[in-house]
Simulated scan of single mutants.
Amino acid sequence: MPLIPPHAEKIADWLLAGLELKSTLFHVGQYCGSWQASTAGHQQASFHVVLHGECWLHLPAKPGRNAMSVHLTQGDAVFLLHDMPHCLSPLPVAPPAGQESQRAGAMEALSSDESSTQQSLGLACGFFEFRSGLDDQLLGLIPDHIVARHNTAAPDGPRAVFDLIRAEVHRHPDAPSPLIARLTELLFFYALRSVAARDDIAPGLWSLMRRAEFAPLITAIIDTPAERWTTDRMADFVHMSRARFCKQFVEACGQPPAQFVTLVRMKVAAAMLRKGTTTPDAAEQVGYQSESAFAQAFKRVTGEQPGAYRRTRTQEPVASGLAVDEKQAALH
């Protein structure tokens, strides 16, 4: 497994801090024979955890990416960070174009019988909800899907989480444990950190961190958001002309440097507001002399006014993620 670049793990932890994520478990069961499963079409991010067996994840082509078919085995998980066409199937060949999100076959109750598990695929599936518009924008800095492998050389953390998921699954197969959703969130956090070591990462935060000339700049912006990070100053920091800096930054990150600085500042401010910091103090600590300008920027990024954001986050605990869908709607 590639080494995580310097600074990248620190940035991963910074990105994860304060992420307001809630996962909801919808289905635990198994498929046999011919089938095709998908959580597409529900306007939500989603996940699939392979409890036993093996299958293929099929993603159709989109601008900037060719169609993909990814082999998954027991212990692997896939996290789709927004609603996107996809399916899981037992076949290595993708379905015809336009049929990637169709569903076929019926999910059966999970069996602990070894002969049954050898001829079937066990899955735990569900959805993610990101509470803040800030989370959506931050996650826009990383690939739209993450595959977490059970056999990576990374440490035992992800494997231990998967073992806990399987233990919860088999405790009461007919009534899925709400802890599965919480454990899946933890697995997602490990997966998100692992993105830093990928060689095929899309434009975004990690591609910036893999560029030796940009990594110190990103770290400095995060550490000192109140500094006057103009485009000229950032270009000087990396010893580039303004035009070259802007071009290479957009190519690596997918957004202009000024927009990235605003996003970093709003994340830092959101953390302060959650701790009860007043709006004027939060504005000053991320470089805004005008409270109204800060409020406009915060609303634009998060979808909420800073005062309202602070009130709701300090009075109400973040959702625990222990929900299980009561309807058990047939999603597959």
Rank of each mutant, 00 (worst) to 15 (best):
H42R: 15
G157C: 01
A97V: 04
Q43Y: 09
F127I: 10
S132D: 08
L121N: 03
Q119G: 05
D113V: 13
G98F: 07
Q119R: 06
S115F: 03
L138Y: 11
A104W: 13
A154Q: 03
E100K: 00
G41C: 11
F130S: 10
Q43R: 05
P158F: 07
S132T: 08
S89H: 01
A106W: 02
L121F: 09
P155L: 12
A153L: 04
G157V: 00
T39V: 14
A104D: 14
L134C: 10
E129N: 11
P158Y: 10
H52G: 13
F127Y: 08
N151E: 07
S112I: 03
V93R: 05
S112R: 00
V50E: 08
R131I: 15
A67H: 06
F130E: 05
T152R: 04
A61E: 12
F128L: 08
P155H: 11
T73C: 08
C55V: 09
S112C: 06
E100G: 01
R65Q: 12
L88M: 04
D83Y: 00
L138C: 08
A37E: 14
G105I: 15
A106D: 14
H58W: 02
A77R: 02
K62F: 12
P90E: 15
A124N: 03
H58F: 02
S69H: 01
D136M: 10
A77Q: 08
V50I: 11
A61D: 06
Q119Y: 00
L81Q: 14
E129Y: 12
A97N: 00
P92H: 07
M84F: 12
F127E: 04
H150K: 12
S46Q: 06
H42V: 13
Q119C: 03
H82Y: 07
L134P: 03
P92D: 07
L72M: 13
T73F: 03
A154F: 02
Q118L: 09
K62R: 14
D144S: 07
A104V: 15
A37V: 15
D113T: 13
S89E: 01
G140W: 02
S89I: 01
R65K: 11
V78D: 02
G122N: 07
G64D: 06
S101P: 04
S116H: 09
P96Q: 09
V147F: 01
